[in-house]
Design a protein around this nucleic acid. Structure first.
Length: 140
RNA sequence: GGAGCGGGUCGGGCGGUCGCCCCGCACCAAAAACAUAUUGUUCACGGCAAGCCGAUUCGUCCAUGGCGGGUUCGCCGUGCUGGACGACCGGGCAGAAUGGGACAAUAUGUUUUUGGUGCGGGGAGGAAAGUCCGAGCAGGGCAGGGCACGGUGGUGGUUAACGGCCACCCGGAGCGAUCCGAGGGAAAGUGCCACAGAAACCACACGGCCGAUGGCCCCACGGGGCACAGGCAAAGGUGAAAUGGUGCGGUAAGAGCGCACCGCGGCGGCGGCGACGUCGCCGGCAGGGUAAACCCCACCGCCUGCAAGACCAAGCAAGCUGGUCAGCCGGCCCGGUCAUAAUCCAGCGGGUAGGUCGCUCGUCCGUGGGGAAAACCCGCGGGCGGAGCCGGUCGGCAACGGCCGGUCCAGAGAAAUGACCGCCCCCCCGCACCAAAAACAUAUUGGACACGUCAAACCGAUUCGCCCAUGACGGGUUCGCCGCGAUGGACGAACGGUCAGAACGGGACAAUAUGUUUUUGGCGCGGGGGACAGAACUCGGCUUAUAGACCCGCUCCGCUU
RNA sequence: GCGGGCGUAGCUUAAUGGUAAAGCCCCAGCCUUCCAAGCUGGUCAUGUGGGUUCGAUUCCCAUCGCCCGCU
């Protein structure tokens, strides 16, 4: 029976970890979020979420991070375990549905974020494997 | 019932599954430390009886002689030599035995850390927000005064403190409940007041009025004229604002010149802690606005901020240059302090970007355990403090304070409170049903009504038409008659009456029934919505955002009793 | 977290408390065979809400938005 947990050891905690993932330069985005991947040697997939301040107020940013964590928690067994992931929210969200150039937060659910995560990972997977074979001892 | 004012409380609830952060307990795994045991290695680590030996030392006894002194000649004292015994010391027994230490390995136990599993407990707000004030706390080596600068600004109180809060005063808004007010000083000084206006604070210039009085002229002696002296400050369109306002008197014209009321100022009495109020008297006005312009007065204020600061680990280069009448409290001065640079200050260059504490009530005492320990850790009990929260009570109009009791349980650090489902609650929309009310339509019944209709026939002091008879009277005439008209009668039409009201029709309105629509309420189904907003060292306030729900007190208006 | 600063036409900037200015842009007209340039005229603003004042872009308070510095 698979457990769907997401503790502190499954997250990226330090700024240099984030920088290492982004320096691998393997990412894709869909206009609302970006996903980056990089190999690790820990033996479990790890996620780091980055929500910049332009996404909205503190309530909005907390909401986005919780949705991302919930999506990763339920999707983690479908992802390759030897990688680090960084999910970056890029669009501007708002609680008010009528705001200009803001996406409404009300209709966003974790299913949507989970679907984005899966689609972006499928787009990245082939590129990731090619780069890993290219430099087999790269991640020293 | 409607409209409104003030204050307070809450900020969806219950259940299930999965998940996050912190704390405690238990178990498992790993690592480290410590303790114990065993084994091994090692150590210029320690000790070892009796018997034996000895060129150690001491004591007792015996023997012998020497020396010195005394002598009662018996001997006494002292030392040396030899022997025996005893004690001590050294050697030896005596080491590859034994004890101890260090190190290593193994086993067991304990503790700590990390990870995992299970159980239990706790886990966002009234504003956590904005960062507008005030404090605690920390640092600036020591840390004070003045100036400058900044803030506040009715009075009294409250508080750790505040620009907060409470009560009162004054001014303004409102019918009112209530609300709003940076609300000291313009007679200390400076500045500004556009345009308009005679003039914006400076004289009363400009523009005016009068000419009573004096002067001049004329004269019919009643007076009139001139505007020279002189008097006056009322009118002067403007403006936000113009040297008190209105009215009456008064005058040559006028004027607080006089009076009344209002405003203003001064003095005094009374009430109040006070701001101030009130009463009386006096002054006749003593001179614009602006201090959220500079300023004056009173009071308050060091600066920096938990990314403060302390410790540990790692790393780098105790590097270079300059400074010393400096620098250290920064804008200035005084006072204070360090004392010439490894140490202080500034600049350049180099390294780190990890962890623990601060930090989530604090502190003290007693006791038990661990411990070398007064340190420190754990458990239990109690006390004290706190500007925390809740309740009660007392004082106070209140803010608030005193006392008593209970409670003090978020603590992350790329940053925890979430996701899904079900039921319930509140609001909105749609549909269906039920009930009530209203409107409309239809039907039936009743039906106010100064609403309308009614034939034929009959009647008529009505009107008209036509016919007949008579032809007054007037006019014309071709003398045949014509025209107009009166009267009477017949006929026809109209009009009025009778018939004819308890008839017929219309019909406000009322009742009943049915249907439609609307509104309200209830119930059911479906759909949508439930705000503002996320702790980051901690408190006290303020400000701002906020769907709604509930409670309390009060005001005004309308209706009913 | 703390400390500063700024919001004026579509854009860039002015403006002692007294009619909000200029350049570019846009629109219309003139000129030109047409375009450009030029000329003439016009439209368009003090972030928002209060307060002080006779009068606020300016002074004060609150609020919203943006920028910068410490780190």
């Amino acid at each position: 029976m698979q457990r769907f947990r997401f503790g502190k050891r499954q997250r990226l905690n330090r700024p240099d970890q984030f920088r290492a993932v982004l320096a691998w330069r393997c990412g894709a985005g869909n206009g609302r979020v970006r996903l980056h991947e990089a190999p690790n040697t820990v033996g479990r997939p790890r996620l780091g979420v980055s929500v910049p301040k332009r996404c909205g107020s503190a309530v909005v940013r907390n909401r986005l991070k919780r949705l991302a964590r919930e999506a990763f928690r339920l999707e983690q067994h479908n992802l390759p375990p030897d990688r680090d992931y960084v999910l970056i929210f890029t669009a501007k969200w708002s609680k008010k549905p009528m705001s200009a150039n803001c996406l409404p937060l009300g209709g966003l659910e974790y299913h949507t974020v989970r679907r984005w995560l899966r689609q972006l990972h499928e787009r990245l997977d082939e590129r990731f494997l090619r780069r890993t074979r290219g430099r087999p001892e790269g991640g020293s």
